[in-house]
C-alpha cells in the first residue's frame, strides 16, 4: 500500500491571511463590479467639488474679512453740493487727526459716478442726482465699538450730515450666506459619503449572496471570517480605488477649470477664493477617505452576514 505518500505533510494548522493571488484563487469572480466603481466615481467627483467649493468659500470669507477689518466708510448725505463738499473736507481733516487712523481717502466724484453709473445711467454724471460724498477710512486695528463711537462724536461736531459705517457691516449678510453655504457643503459631503457607503453595502451584500455557496464551503473547510472578509475587501479595494481616483481627478479638473473661469473675471474675489496647496491636499484626501469608508462598510457587511453562520 503506497497510499501514505499521497497525503500532504502533516501541516501546522495556522490561519494564513488570504492575500493577493491566493484570495483570487478562492473567490476569483468576486469583483463587485457592476455599477459600484461608477457610483463611487460620481460620489467622489461630487464630494471633491463640494469640498473644493467649501474651501474656496472659506478662503474668500477669511481674506475678505481680514481686508475689511478696520475699514470704515463715511457718507455725507447732503443735497446741497457746496455744504456737502465742505462737510466732506472738514470730516476728512478731522478724521486724519484722530489717533489710530491709518489712512483717509475721499473718494473722487468721478470715481463715485462711475460706480453708480450702471444703475443711474447718464444722470450720475450730472448734479441732478444728489450723490453722497464718500470717504474711505482705514484704521490701524479692528473697528471696535469704542473707537467707532469716539469717531462718530468727532464727526458729528464737524460734519452733522456724516454717517460712519464699518465696511464689515455691509458684508454681514454675505458672510452669513457664506457660512450657510459652508454648512450646506459639509452636509452634502456627509450625505455623499453615506450614499457611497450604502452603494458599497448593497454591492457587498449582493456579492455575498451570489457567492454564498462558495463562502459556506470555505467556511466549512475552516476558513475564518477574516479570511473570507479579506477576499471581499480585496475586490472592494480594487473597485472603489478605481472609482474614487477617477471621480476625484474629474472633480479636481472641474475645480481647476472653474478657478480659471473666475480668474478671467479679474474680480479679486477669485484671488481670495483660490485654493492653497494645503487645500488641495485636503481635496486629495477625499478619494482616500472614500476607499477607507468603502473598505470598512464591506468588511462590516460581510462580517455581519458571516456572523449568522454557525
Amino acid at each position: 500500500m503506497r497510499a501514505p505518500s499521497v497525503f500532504a505533510r502533516a501541516i501546522g494548522r495556522g490561519q494564513a491571511g488570504l492575500a493577493g493571488a491566493r484570495a483570487a484563487r478562492v473567490l476569483p469572480a468576486t469583483r463587485l463590479g457592476g455599477p459600484m466603481p461608477w457610483v463611487i466615481a460620481i460620489m467622489a467627483a461630487l464630494t471633491v467639488l463640494a469640498a473644493g467649493g467649501a474651501l474656496a468659500l472659506a478662503n474668500f470669507a477669511e481674506r475678505t474679512r481680514a481686508g475689511l477689518e478696520g475699514g470704515l466708510t463715511v457718507q455725507i448725505v447732503e443735497a446741497d453740493p457746496a455744504a456737502r463738499d465742505g462737510q466732506a473736507a472738514r470730516a476728512a481733516q478731522a478724521l486724519a487727526r484722530q489717533p489710530g487712523v491709518a489712512s483717509v481717502r475721499p473718494v473722487p466724484r468721478d470715481e463715485l459716478a462711475r460706480l453708480v453709473e450702471p444703475w443711474l445711467g447718464e444722470a450720475a454724471q450730472s448734479d441732478a442726482v444728489a450723490l453722497p460724498a464718500l470717504i474711505d477710512v482705514a484704521l490701524a486695528g479692528p473697528a471696535d465699538e469704542a473707537r467707532l463711537s469716539r469717531l462718530r462724536s468727532e464727526l458729528a461736531r464737524v460734519a452733522p450730515a456724516a454717517r460712519l459705517d464699518p465696511q464689515a457691516d455691509w458684508l454681514g449678510p454675505v458672510f452669513e450666506t457664506i457660512r450657510a453655504l459652508r454648512w450646506l457643503a459639509l452636509t452634502l459631503i456627509a450625505m455623499l459619503t453615506a450614499a457611497s457607503a450604502a452603494a458599497v453595502w448593497l454591492a457587498a451584500r449582493n456579492a455575498f449572496d451570489a457567492n454564498r455557496e462558495t463562502i459556506e464551503i470555505v467556511h466549512h473547510l475552516g476558513g475564518n471570517d477574516t479570511q473570507i472578509a479579506g477576499i471581499f475587501q480585496r475586490s472592494v479595494l480594487i473597485d472603489s480605488a478605481l472609482g474614487a481616483v477617477l471621480g476625484a481627478v474629474l472633480g479636481a479638473a472641474v475645480l481647476v477649470l472653474l478657478g480659471e473661469r473666475f480668474g478671467a473675471l479679474q474680480s479679486g474675489v477669485v484671488e481670495s477664493g483660490s485654493l492653497s496647496t494645503l487645500d488641495w491636499l485636503g481635496v486629495a484626501l477625499v478619494p482616500v477617505v472614500m476607499v477607507g469608508v468603502a473598505l470598512l462598510t464591506a468588511r462590516r457587511t460581510v462580517m455581519v452576514r458571516l456572523g449568522r453562520m454557525l
Binding site: F7, A8, R13, Q15, A16, L221, G222, G223
Partner: peptide
C-alpha cells in the same frame, strides 16, 4: 483549498495535490 486556507506555501502544496 484546505492547504491554502491553512497557509501552506504554493511550492509545498503542488506535489501533494
Amino acid at each position: 483549498l484546505p492547504l491554502r486556507l491553512s497557509g501552506v506555501r504554493e511550492d509545498e502544496l503542488r506535489q501533494p495535490v
